[in-house]
């Protein structure tokens, strides 16, 4: 079921990239997609790829929403006439529960693009992520927000 769906999806992407939705081009895209799915079959089978796709979609949705929210928040901070009054910058060490390089890299990138936070560094034993906050409410709230939001979603995707 999912293999047929993947081939169909690839045929459409092929047609969209080449800018030609004629029947022949769609069939050709489907053939190329079929070869790709056959080659990658072994690695696709091993994990529950559909559940994974759903987790990735959930993460992407959350991320796009947070990205827009963060841009608007930065814009509001910048537009204040007394700019320094609205700032409470701080560097907070956030304990990490994810361990692999890929997970930490993804989490750090997501944190940078979400409201009021910017990842600065990872401690050498990879247990702490140093996060720079633009308007800190309290360090505990920031840590709880990251652990309950993106960190949990990132773990779901990589399981």
């Amino acid at each position: 079921m999912s293999a047929a769906f993947l081939i169909l999806l690839m045929a459409f992407i092929w047609a969209a990239i080449t800018g030609n939705f004629s029947g022949l081009n769609l069939v050709f895209g489907g053939l190329v997609g079929g070869v790709a799915v056959m080659i990658l079959r072994a690695s696709l089978r091993q994990r529950g790829e559909l559940a994974r796709l759903r987790h990735i979609a959930a993460l992407t949705g959350l991320f796009l929403y947070e990205l827009m929210a963060s841009a608007i928040r930065v814009a509001l901070v910048v537009m204040r006439p007394d700019i320094t009054a609205g700032l409470r910058p701080a560097v907070v060490a956030v304990p990490l529960s994810v361990k692999s390089d890929a997970e930490i890299a993804l989490l750090a990138n997501l944190i940078t693009l979400t409201p009021g936070t910017l990842s600065v560094d990872v401690s050498e034993d990879r247990s702490l992520l140093y996060v720079h906050a633009l308007t800190l409410a309290s360090p505990e709230a920031l840590i709880a927000e990251i652990a309950g939001g993106f960190e949990a979603r990132v773990r779901e995707v990589f399981q």
Binding site: L67, M68, S70, A71, V74, A75, V77, V78, I83, T84, L87, P89, T112, L113, G116, L118, V120, H132, L134
Partner: peptide, 21 residues
């Protein structure tokens, strides 16, 4: 934001988020 904010780290907030969006 890059001109008005007080230090490099806060300026990075403006450049990375508002710039990317």
């Amino acid at each position: 934001g890059v001109v008005r904010l007080p230090d490099l780290y806060t300026r990075l907030h403006a450049a990375s988020k508002a710039g990317a969006v």
